[in-house]
């Protein structure tokens, strides 16, 4: 369970959260939905302890994350950041094994067993061919997968992803999110991600946190009896009635424009 209590945070010239509170029950996949600049990335960085809140606190499974050191936090949370070109000077295999650096001996680095685990993870992600490559030679889509592999290798209770699929093509977006869902089902781990496409979120997430005006206005679960109705309502609040969900079979299509009945 994630509990955000009276959280306030401001950058020098920008108040991001003022007294934000919400509770999120355990779900395999949770999606953070909100427009640009509503503080999704900031909240993720606060969750990870990369930023310190001005006021309030965040409890994850009853641990106040402000009171944990890096090691303890890394056991609780792993992180797949947005596109990052700053840590690419190593092989894919070494990069993945960095996810377990605190489990490894100080002097010898990852052992045979850990290398094998890294290989198995890549196999699951259909990316075994990348094992011996160097990070800097990979495409964006391939790098996303390797970041995912490292987070899986880290084996924390909750994986936090910041816009993991926004730079991928449509096929790779679905492949990535499927891998993510498979991972939660196989390992009983939880995933928390920010995502821009509500139809992708609808398809793959079990819980939704909606952000607007620097606050969260709803936490919605898929098993809610009137889920579709509430989801439609939340979407129209999110996009100020400019986007209307149209449900087709199991999916949802986001329609933009003047047909909006409320206009």
């Amino acid at each position: 369970m994630i509990e955000v209590r009276n959280l306030s945070f401001a950058f020098p010239d920008n108040v991001v959260f003022d007294d934000l509170s919400f509770i999120l029950n355990d779900c395999p996949v949770t999606a953070f939905l909100g427009l640009n600049g509503e503080g999704k990335t900031t909240l993720i960085r606060l969750l990870l302890g990369l930023l310190k809140p001005d006021k309030g606190n965040i409890l994850i499974d009853k641990h106040d994350i402000g009171g944990l050191n890096e090691k303890e936090r890394a056991k609780l949370l792993s992180y797949v950041p947005q596109e990052n070109d700053d840590s690419l000077l190593m092989s894919v295999s070494d990069f993945i094994c960095m996810g377990g650096i605190n489990r490894q001996s100080l002097f010898t680095g990852p052992d045979e067993n850990e290398r094998r685990i890294a290989k198995d993870i890549l196999k699951e992600l259909d990316a075994l061919a990348l094992y011996d490559r160097k990070m800097e030679t990979l495409s964006h889509g391939q790098r996303r997968l390797i970041y995912l592999a490292r987070a899986i290798f880290q084996d924390s209770r909750i994986m936090v992803l910041d816009e993991p699929v926004s730079s991928l093509d449509l096929v790779r977006q679905h492949a990535f999110l499927k891998h993510l869902r498979d991972y939660t089902q196989k390992n009983g781990r939880r995933v928390l991600m920010s995502i821009h496409d509500p139809s992708l979120a609808y398809e793959y997430a079990d819980a939704f946190v909606f952000f607007r005006n620097h606050g969260s206005y709803d936490v919605l679960y898929r098993n809610d009896p009137s889920f579709k109705e509430k989801f439609s309502n939340d979407i129209s609040i999110l996009y100020e009635n400019r986007i209307r969900p149209v449900y087709i079979d199991d999916g949802v299509f986001m329609s933009y424009g003047s047909e909006d009945p409320d206009r």
Binding site: L48, R73, D86, M98
Partner: peptide, 14 residues
């Protein structure tokens, strides 16, 4: 060689 914040989330005291 890792990015500073990434290293931190891997449990490294950067």
């Amino acid at each position: 060689l890792l990015d500073e914040e990434e290293a931190q989330t891997l449990g490294i005291n950067v």
